[in-house]
Simulated scan of single mutants.
Amino acid sequence: MANRLPDISDKHKICIICEGNEEYKYLEHLNNLQVWNDVYEIALVNAAGNGNIPARYQDKYQNGSYEIVLIFCDTEKKPYEQYEDIKRKINDFHGVDNAAEEVIIFGNPCTMQIISKHWTDEFIKRPAKAVNAPLIEKYTGVKGYKGRADQIDQVMKSIDTDNYTYMKERIGKLPTDDHVDGSSNFSKLVQCLESDDVKWIDRINDSIEA
């Protein structure tokens, strides 16, 4: 039997460090919906907690297997101590003051701020699951949302290519200052991943290299 050479992909390899299950499952679902440009090959890493993000980021960045490494996380609530700690560690790692601003995709106060935009313009003001459970049930039918794996899977079933378009419109109107309630720069990620022009990868990498 002849030896087969491994398939060599010519796609642009992108790694995204996800804070936890919600972030991971959401990006995984969007990727599976094939709403992004086929020129990208996206690898997702579940950091299983915001405290693990800087180490996971450094590991994947130094690994050299990806053209760019990004982070997708919550800001949580003011005074954003853990979030600010992530930013500081990313900046220190690169030796560049604004490196974190280039590579972090955030939802303030939480990722459900982004996910909910598939169905509504309502703002999520607090990250607590119990506070947001009624809104999630209203639009997805998932009762008593606590962020369990099975509940996240059920929420993902309510996301399709049609309401993805509505999410893009709504998310594009949000403020992008990460210290403003109800803000997100998720539209930046969407625009990059939908584009077949990959110059944004070099632009970000050039800006974070001291």
Rank of each mutant, 00 (worst) to 15 (best):
M1N: 13
M1D: 10
M1R: 15
N3K: 15
L5G: 06
I8S: 10
K11R: 15
C15I: 05
I17G: 01
I17K: 00
C18D: 03
E19R: 03
G20N: 05
N21M: 09
E23P: 01
Y24F: 14
Y26C: 01
L27I: 08
E28H: 10
E28N: 14
L33D: 07
V35E: 06
V35K: 09
W36Y: 14
N37P: 08
D38W: 04
V39R: 11
Y40D: 00
A43Q: 13
A43W: 05
A47V: 04
G49Y: 12
N50Q: 12
G51Q: 11
P54D: 07
Q58K: 15
K60T: 03
K60V: 03
K60G: 00
Q62Y: 05
Y66R: 03
Y66T: 01
E67H: 13
I68M: 09
L70K: 03
I71H: 03
D74S: 08
D74Y: 02
K78I: 06
Y80I: 03
Y80L: 05
Q82G: 09
Q82H: 12
Q82Y: 08
E84D: 14
E84G: 00
K87F: 02
K89Q: 14
I90T: 01
D92E: 14
D92T: 09
H94Q: 04
G95R: 10
G95E: 10
E101P: 05
I104S: 01
F106Q: 03
F106K: 01
G107R: 01
N108G: 10
P109D: 02
T111R: 00
M112S: 10
Q113V: 12
Q113S: 13
S116R: 05
W119S: 08
W119Y: 14
E122G: 03
F123T: 12
I124P: 02
R126A: 11
R126E: 14
K129W: 15
K129D: 14
N132T: 10
A133D: 06
P134E: 08
L135T: 12
K138Q: 15
K138N: 10
Y139F: 15
G141I: 04
K143W: 00
Y145P: 07
K146I: 13
A149Y: 06
Q151M: 04
I152T: 09
I152G: 08
I159Q: 06
D160N: 15
Y164C: 08
Y164N: 12
T165S: 13
M167P: 02
K168H: 04
P175C: 08
T176W: 05
D178C: 13
H179S: 13
H179W: 07
S184M: 06
F186V: 01
V190M: 08
Q191N: 15
C192D: 11
E194I: 07
S195I: 04
D197H: 10
I204G: 03
I204V: 15
I204W: 11
D206P: 00
D206Y: 14
D206C: 08
D206W: 12
E209M: 13
